[in-house]
Design a protein around this nucleic acid. Structure first.
Lengths: 109, 109
DNA sequence: CTACATAGATAGTGAAGCTACATGTGTCGA
DNA sequence: TCGACACATGTAGCTTCACTATCTATGTAG
């Protein structure tokens, strides 16, 4: 993730990846692009973080992959959520809200 | 930090610690208590995270420690922010707000 | 007198993400 | 046509972090 300095908010990468492929299959490179775009250039997922994370999620059966042709005619590995992955996404979204809320209580007090 | 399951939001521990001693000197045990309280029992800082983190922050000269008598007559190590620590706190607070905002853009889209 | 709260600390472990690098293709401009 | 860049995937090695488990010690409440 974009790091400029601190590694603030580690542990959210999986969540971001799951969320990003929730609407439909997407390849790794595209996921990173989409996150960069929707975060308004703030969150830049590095390749060295991205691909290991995707492999990790696949090993956990939260996502599956399939080689397909991309829009521009190249081959790319498209990832999509498994039912388990979708459940995990929702659970982690709840967790994330709980935690950021709790942390805000401390930080903005 | 409270972990129930995932290690969501690692990297915020230092920030929580710095923020908690910002109003005035406090000892480790008290810091953990205060975080538990103000987060409404959500954030439970473990000792195995707490003390190493405090030592880390002290090594970085963001905080200093002094043995003093606690309210109940016991000796405890009171930590307080150095000027550098205070600057760091503000910088990290900004970072945190930037990041959570960016992540929200992705997660709540 | 025993259990618990207060108070501090460390060893060992596992996971996560980063840097840096390697590989290969297609396209666009000079 | 040649070099740079965007597209696309991947790994090795490293560091940092937080957790579990464990240890020590004291005062107090039951």
């Amino acid at each position: 993730m974009a790091q400029e300095k601190s590694d603030l908010l580690q542990g959210t990468l999986d969540l971001l990846l799951l969320k990003t492929i929730a609407p439909g299959p997407l390849h790794g490179y595209g996921i990173a692009q989409r996150i960069l775009l929707t975060s308004q250039e703030v969150l830049q997922v590095q390749q060295g973080s991205l691909y290991p994370a995707l492999h990790r999620l696949e090993r956990k059966s939260l996502i599956t992959s399939k080689w397909k042709e991309s829009e521009n005619g190249r081959m790319a590995k498209f990832y999509s959520l498994t039912p388990t992955g979708r459940k995990q996404l929702n659970a982690e979204l709840d967790q994330w809200r709980r935690y950021t809320n709790a942390i805000s209580l401390v930080l903005e007090s």
